[in-house]
Amino acid sequence: GPREVTMKKGDILTLLNSTNKDWWKVEVNDRQGFVPAAYVKKLDSGTGKELVLALYDYQ
């Protein structure tokens, strides 16, 4: 199956793709996968990378 990404509340993840309104593709610890968009919030990183903050645990 697809590689699952797990996250804990407060984690910072790299946002790869947010074109789908329900599932965003993120990368964390060299793993890529989809997380519910409602579970993360975009951060203003000030760099080229888009980052998101995990609002809830997800696994």
Rank of each mutant, 00 (worst) to 15 (best):
V28D: 06
T19D: 14
D22E: 09
L13R: 00
D11W: 06
G48V: 08
L43P: 00
Y39D: 04
N17D: 15
P36S: 03
V35K: 00
L13G: 07
T6S: 14
T6G: 08
L51F: 09
R31W: 15
V28A: 12
Y58P: 02
N20H: 10
Q32A: 11
S18R: 07
M7E: 00
K49E: 11
L13F: 05
T6W: 13
K42E: 06
D44W: 10
V35E: 01
I12W: 04
A37C: 05
V40Q: 01
V26D: 00
N20Y: 07
T19L: 08
G48N: 09
T14S: 07
K21G: 07
D44C: 15
K8W: 06
D11K: 02
A54Y: 02
V26C: 03
K9Y: 04
L55R: 03
G10P: 01
K49M: 11
V35N: 01
T19M: 09
Q32D: 06
Y58V: 02
T14A: 08
V26Q: 00
L15P: 00
V26H: 00
Q32I: 15
R31G: 11
V40P: 03
Y58S: 01
L53N: 02
M7A: 01
N20L: 07
N20R: 08
L43F: 10
K49A: 11
Y56H: 11
G1F: 14
Y56A: 11
D11V: 03
G10I: 02
Q59D: 14
V40E: 02
P2S: 13
F34T: 04
L13H: 03
Q59Y: 13
T6K: 11
E27L: 10
N17R: 05
L15M: 02
V28H: 13
R3Y: 15
N29Y: 07
Y56L: 10
K42W: 09
G1W: 14
Y58G: 01
L16C: 05
P36Q: 03
L51E: 08
K41I: 14
K25I: 15
W24G: 00
L15N: 00
L15D: 01
T19A: 10
K9C: 06
D44H: 11
D30F: 08
S45D: 13
V52P: 00
M7V: 06
N29L: 07
T47I: 11
T14Y: 09
E27C: 13
P2H: 14
W23A: 01
W23R: 02
Y56R: 15
R3T: 13
D22N: 13
D57R: 02
T14G: 05
A37P: 07
V28Y: 13
D30G: 15
T6E: 09
Q32L: 07
K8R: 11
T14M: 08
G33W: 13
A54V: 12
E50C: 13
L15G: 00
G1M: 12
Y39L: 14
D44M: 10
S45T: 14
K9N: 04
V26W: 01
R31N: 09
S45R: 09
P2F: 14
G46D: 14
D44Y: 11
D30I: 03
G46P: 13
P36Y: 04
K49R: 10
V35W: 02
Q59H: 13
R3H: 15
D44S: 11
K9G: 04
Y58E: 01
L55N: 02
T47A: 12
P36F: 05
A54F: 03
N29Q: 09
T47C: 13
V28E: 05
V26A: 01
S18A: 12
D30N: 12
N29W: 06
V35T: 01
R31C: 10
T14Q: 09
D22R: 11
L15Q: 00
D22V: 12
V5M: 14
Y39R: 06
V35H: 00
D30W: 05
W23E: 02
D22F: 14
G33F: 15
T6F: 15
L13E: 00
S45G: 12
V28K: 13
T6V: 14
E27I: 10
M7C: 04
D57G: 05
F34D: 04
T14V: 15
L16T: 04
S18G: 08
D11G: 02
S45L: 13
W23Y: 05
G33I: 15
N20M: 07
T47G: 14
L16G: 01
N29P: 03
L13N: 00
E4Q: 14
N17G: 06
G33H: 08
T14E: 07
L55C: 05
M7I: 10
L15H: 00
D22A: 08
V5E: 02
D30T: 07
T6L: 09
P2V: 12
G46R: 09
R31T: 14
V52E: 00
N29G: 14
E4W: 15
T6I: 14
Y56C: 14
E27V: 09
A37S: 13
D22G: 07
T47M: 11
D44T: 12
E4P: 15
F34V: 05
A54R: 00
D44P: 14
V40K: 00
L53P: 00
K41W: 06
G46M: 11
T19G: 08
G46Q: 12
L43Q: 04
Q32K: 08
A38Y: 09
G1D: 11
V28P: 00
G10A: 03
I12P: 01
Q59V: 14
E27R: 07
Y39Q: 05
V26G: 00
G46H: 13
L16M: 05
A37T: 04
N20D: 13
T6D: 08
W24Q: 01
T6P: 05
V52Q: 00
K49D: 09
V40A: 02
S18E: 11
L51W: 08
S45K: 09
N20G: 08
Q32C: 12
L13I: 06
G48F: 08
T47E: 13
F34I: 06
R3V: 14
R3D: 12
D57H: 04
E50N: 12
K9S: 06
E50S: 12
Y58F: 10
I12V: 10
E4G: 15
V5G: 03
W23S: 02
Q32Y: 10
K21I: 07
V35R: 00
T19K: 09
V40H: 00
E50L: 12
S45M: 12
W24Y: 07
L53W: 04
K9H: 05
K42N: 05
K49I: 13
V26N: 00
S45Q: 10
